[in-house]
Design a protein around this nucleic acid. Structure first.
Lengths: 189, 189
DNA sequence: TCACAAATAGACTGTTCGGTCTAACTTTAA
DNA sequence: TTAAAGTTAGACCGAACAGTCTATTTGTGA
């Protein structure tokens, strides 16, 4: 009976912090969002910071795998899996409107809190390594550095979805990201 | 005698909000940073929000021109001016460590405040139009869409400097951005 | 020299912040 | 049946928040 409450809290915190940021989200907002008394909340988490760090590892980290769907379709060339994942981002409305939750939290918290910086870096490194692996399982031109190409891909996707949250985002994303796709295709042998 | 005080305030607010974000910067921090009494501060600005909006137009907006140095060297091809500007970003330590101030503020404030969203978009649109103009003054392959290419460039540069603020940033930026430069060069006729 | 406006100064206010505390309810196992 | 543990409940706390207010000092033109 204790799991649902904890999970409900994590869902509410993820949603609120994603949109409003860490400092823009108050405990009162969280309490209201999940309709849970303060005592319960502090029974599961010792502080606001601990709560959001739990969101990083238990909500954002798993979502990385889900959004970028890097596990499936192992029969394909790695880079084709990757291209499909990049296109699939356009289907995620929140992602395209508000940007990457990890990137948002990173920009807000990493400069001012070492614990956040570390936790966020762990998730980022996992993602980058996974993409690097996919690139290594691809027929690419020999002189291409797989690690920096991974970072280039992440930077471009994250950058694209971080430009002006409110403008008609899906078509803008598709237009912008076409250049990335062109470049990646040009690297195939 | 009134200019210096106002300018001092804007400088302090820009610096603090750049690093700590809007919600992470308190009036007390601002007061301490610029060593000015509260009465003076509220004499020049009617609210914290008005102060930061002034920073957008009077500090961040001018910096766009400065950082991306798009006015100079008009003798060159537009795209060469642009390539030089992209490389020059690596020289700006704060920029490469903390990301673009406009992008940071955009991600924090645009989703929750229409006034910020509007002000930030104005600055962004000016930058994009300027880059588009440079691209139009270049010998590029005929089928290249200049506007979406501008947004791709901004997205990639901003994305690159937003990845993990604390890691050794200049060399990482250079490695990542090399892919962008390769792509842009491939578009030249 | 004086009057008026601009600017400085900081004590003070009401509200909201994250977090604590005690009490009570519910579940579980003996 | 009962005692202990797990969980719910929300009143309460001091600190920090953005912003107000009145008083004083400084600069300026007549």
């Amino acid at each position: 009976m204790s799991q649902p409450t904890r999970e409900k809290i994590l869902d509410a915190v993820f949603k609120l912090v994603y949109i409003n940021g860490y400092n823009g989200t108050s405990m009162a907002m969280i309490l209201k969002e999940c309709g849970i008394p303060k005592g319960s909340l502090y029974h599961y988490f010792k502080s606001k910071k601990a709560m959001v760090l739990a969101v990083v590892s238990e909500r954002i980290n798993p979502r990385m795998d889900e959004f970028y769907q890097l596990n499936v379709e192992e029969s394909q060339e790695g880079i084709d899996t990757l291209l499909a994942a990049i296109l699939k981002v356009s289907k995620k409305e929140l992602l395209v409107s508000y940007g990457c939750p990890l990137n948002r939290l990173n920009q807000e918290m990493s400069p001012v809190d070492a614990d956040f910086e570390k936790a966020i870096n762990n998730v980022y490194n996992r993602l980058r390594d996974k993409i690097t692996l996919l690139l290594e399982n691809s027929q690419l031109q020999a002189d291409v550095d797989k690690v920096s190409l991974s970072e280039f891909i992440i930077a471009t996707v994250w950058g694209s979805i971080s430009l002006s949250p409110t403008q008609s985002s899906t078509s803008r994303y598709m237009q912008t990201i076409t250049h990335l796709i062109n470049y990646l295709k040009s690297l195939k042998v």
